[in-house]
Design a binder for these strands. Structure first.
Lengths: 316, 316
DNA sequence: TATCCTTACGGAATTCGTAAGCATG
DNA sequence: CATGCTTACGAATTCCGTAAGGATA
């Protein structure tokens, strides 16, 4: 058993069982990959992959059992390297953050700026994607921490720690009739075409639920992945926007008006996700605490060491 | 990074930093071991071992951090092999049980007999040792499961599952004055020389505590590791014995009499220990359930997957 | 001086990539 | 017939054990 074999196995799953792609990803030859996989299968005495003719098509029953262990081992290998670096170069390294647009654009800048000043020699890597992609990057090890409101709690191999709560606001053009009412209601809102987030993004679920509960079918004329796009179309007069309150900046968005909608839609909880069992560099703990001050190092350490289903104070 | 390096690291710790012994244990040459360790240290960029002159003496700060990860990886490698075997030879393999004398002698025989009949091709390996040794064998991976009343809950890398509760009995020769009293008390017991377990064995702690609580200093004329030795000396008239009730067999011990002492000493809880994160063969789950029927597979699986400190139903 | 680690060196084994072969959609 | 996996083979590398060297209790 060796690590090249394990890497081949892991990459074969990631590359959907195309060994040619695996070879490319691992910077080696295709026959080599073929051999690595075959060798480990021989050593274990079982096929890990289902072969149809010569092609690999899926994991066998054992494969399903084995692959998570393989991934754990390879992650531990990374942890080992990180543990070494933590001592050779305490203030140098890499911090890879995966976040949704909303987080990257509105929640993270402050913490990132502080972090840059404090750790000028740590290369910051900010990846943006859908909540699912954020989770995927954590699982694959591409990202060290992930920040999103959705999806992070759904995977057993991740821990999700609560960062902050937020609500939505309705965004309209100046002089819009909705501004005239003393209080905003769902009925009044539903009289206008609505522009908001795509499904699965930034609390969209809570928006749908609120309307459904009142038996209202809102007129969703446009949905987008991020608040900037939404605001653009609101400015163009296509409808009223529903965005995260944090996305409205009075100074910057002078040709728009915001109406608080915290009473209309359920409160959202943004979470910070980490792969279980990760060894985190010291500066990662610092970043996390800067971003969400209740998440002290000791708490995060316990969360990372916890098992799926287990509750670590703020967690769940 | 390769597994031989990891094995060298692990073994170096186990062999108290004597690389000559490490080489012997790993069936390789001493310069080889030296090189493996040096290579991994080079790759990580940090020394893992403190060197005084040329000798290794202890772990560095990083070493302390790294060694647990190394052990986890090597254990996962074993898990991988076991997962393979589970499919190639479901009813063949090895089951290594570590237990204290009391357990091996009185509690296990029934389960072992059933298991042998059910899995004739699984090689059973029964190791005997002190509670500490049982824990040590679990931690090192020499034993798959451990059974003891003490010590198992003390290590973070182990889970301890409760098996059964038991109390002590007082063992005397026929016609002994203690048999004349309607009820046994600590005072009456303490008027006789006492023979019982060594410290740290089979509920000895509860015996000491009970006497201490009443301000009595018992006359411990002899202590031994197991009930058979104790019974032998009771027969010889050296004193009265205090042993686990389970260790007295009316049919076999015809020249001895037992007096229940469940009301004098606290109840003991025998536990089954497993290394966290182990992949267990199917027959291991069967054995466990045969031994302690409440420990169903699903429960044990959750316990093994749990993190230190977490409570899994019957656990704690 | 015995123990224990390191360095040096040469042979053995392993590893890996290229080229050719073969199955499948 | 293009894609994708396997087999075959030779070169390069790595690995490992022996032998010699040096430090320490």
């Amino acid at each position: 058993m060796n690590f090249q074999q394990l890497r081949s196995i892991r990459e074969a799953v990631r590359q959907k069982f195309n060994l040619t792609d695996v070879a490319r990803a691992l910077h080696t030859s295709q026959p080599g990959v073929s051999r690595q996989i075959r060798e480990l299968e021989d050593e274990l005495g079982v096929d890990l992959f289902v072969r149809e003719g010569k092609r690999l098509t899926s994991l066998t029953e054992v494969g399903v059992l084995v692959v998570p262990i393989v991934e754990k081992m390879l992650n531990d290998a990374d942890n080992l390297r990180r543990a070494g670096q933590e001592f050779t170069q305490k203030t140098r390294g890499r911090l890879s953050i995966a976040a949704t647009h909303s987080q990257a654009r509105y929640a993270l800048p402050g913490a990132v700026k502080d972090f840059r000043r404090r750790y000028p020699h740590v290369a910051l890597n900010l990846h943006q994607g859908s909540p699912d992609q954020v989770a995927g990057m954590l699982i694959s090890g591409e990202a060290d921490i992930g920040i999103a409101t959705e999806a992070l709690s759904l995977h057993d191999s991740l821990v999700a720690l609560p960062c902050y709560r937020w609500t939505h606001s309705v965004i309209v053009t100046p002089g819009h009739p909705l501004l005239a009412w003393p209080t905003l209601t769902l009925e009044r809102l539903s009289e206008h075409p609505i522009i908001t987030y795509n499904e699965g993004f930034t609390g969209r679920l809570h928006i749908d639920r609120a309307f459904a509960k009142q038996g209202i079918t809102p007129d969703l004329v446009l949905t987008a992945m991020d608040a900037d796009v939404i605001k653009t179309y609101v400015e163009l007069g296509l409808g009223v926007g529903i965005v995260a309150s944090i996305a409205f900046d009075e100074a910057r968005d002078q040709n728009l008006r915001a109406i608080d909608a915290g009473h209309l839609f359920a409160v959202n909880l943004t979470k910070l996700g980490i792969r279980r069992g990760s060894f985190l560099r010291g500066y990662v703990y610092d970043f996390i605490e800067t971003f969400a001050s209740p998440l002290k190092r000791e708490l995060v350490e316990r969360a990372v060491a916890s098992a799926p289903g287990e509750c670590v104070e703020l967690d769940c």
